[in-house]
Amino acid sequence: MKEQIESILSAHGHRPGPLLIVLHAVQQEFGYVPDEAIPLIADGLNLSRAEVYGVLTFYHHFRRSPPGRHVVQICRAESCAAMQGERLAQYAQQRLNIAFHETTPDGRFSLEPVYCLGNCACSPALMIDGELHGRVSPERFDELIASKQVET
């Protein structure tokens, strides 16, 4: 891990205000920001560990533990709520048998809430592994999950 983080730091550390860029790169590399990375980043950017920790925990996007192989993000904002988004959110929790912010025991799916994917004209919306889907009915949700189960 040390090696990968050092290479991220040498690629981005010189840029103005680099901490968010570095955290994004670390999460890109590992899928989350491991605790062991915090002192390495702090050293590399000449910050205190508290500063790195403070930034890391401020932003909803950064994860501190490994996610499931597929990350399902369901929009909880008003436009989706007006189009049965709440029903979709309930259905997803039931179908995957986990609550938001949890991962299925087989490590396959993580469920995360998100506040607006900008797909409000095709509500309700969700994103799976960075891929956006709109007008998602419970049936469509099943199809999407099934297609991911085929993958792994």
Binding site: P16, G17, V55, H61
Partner: peptide, 26 residues
Amino acid sequence: VRLGAGAYICGEETSMLESLEGKRGE
């Protein structure tokens, strides 16, 4: 281009500047 990290508050202009500087979006 700099990416945010899922904080709604960073749409507030001074919070956005903090975030651009790599800090908490306060």
